[in-house]
Nucleic acid binder design. Structure first.
Length: 209
DNA sequence: GTAAGGATGCGCT
DNA sequence: GCGCATCCTTACG
């Protein structure tokens, strides 16, 4: 298994229904350039879909603001936001221009340049380096300076490239993690997708009734 | 093993 | 000012 940082997923990959993109991102490689020679890489194992004005859990449910306007832009760009006063979260924008939607990358299996990840996440086991949306950004050193980065551009320091095929038999879904009451019925949508038996998943518990 | 609460800063009302 | 698409530490079985 080797990562080819030039096998970039094209914009057409993201210009599809968000749930399809969320499913197909499982097994893909998230790749970040550390410097001229060094790349860090990890296989995506857990995602969540956030889609449109009707999804009350979607940041864009209340309309376009300075914070979420990337979600209204063209697909294939990174939406990175800061939350809980300390965590960054990384999303890939999906669907057509002006339709706000994105896939939250929640967990990944470290594959390339684990040294850098261990430095940024001292004291953690390897399986925990990228296990959670905040952890994933911490482990890969992704902050708000990555907001709006084009994930499909050959010069970008952050991109997603072709990875491994994950069979449907290995994929499971659940409701999304961490949504509060204000999301209404949206919080029960089964829009979290993950590789069922991966040891690299987040510890997040899906929203319950 | 699980559960509860605190940390923390930004976006939005 | 309030609440958050979270994570970590602490407490207790």
């Amino acid at each position: 298994m080797s990562i080819d940082p030039t096998a970039i997923l094209p914009r057409s990959f993201y210009d599809r229904p968000t749930l399809v993109v969320a499913r197909e991102l499982l097994g893909a490689y998230l790749v970040k350039r550390e410097n001229a020679e060094t790349w860090s890489g990890a296989m995506i194992v857990e995602t969540e879909a956030y889609r449109g004005r009707d999804d009350k859990a979607c940041h864009a449910a209340g309309g376009k603001t300075a914070r979420n306007e990337v979600m209204f832009g063209p697909p294939g760009h990174a939406y990175v936001y800061f939350t809980y006063g300390m965590h960054h979260c990384l999303n890939a924008v999906t669907e057509a221009l002006e339709f706000p939607a994105a896939v939250l990358l929640r967990a990944a299996q470290p594959l390339l340049n684990l040294e850098s990840m261990r430095e940024r996440r001292t004291g953690r086991k390897d399986r925990e380096l990228l296990a959670g949306p905040g952890c994933l950004c911490a482990g890969l050193g992704i902050d708000r300076s990555f907001n709006t980065v084009d994930l499909t551009h050959p010069d970008s320091r952050l991109r997603i490239v072709r990875g491994q095929r994950v069979p449907n038999s290995a994929v499971d879904t659940s409701s999304r993690v961490g949504l509060s009451k204000h999301s209404g019925d949206s919080r029960f949508l089964p829009w979290r997708t993950f590789v069922r038996d991966s040891p690299y998943l987040s510890r997040g518990r899906p929203t319950r009734q």
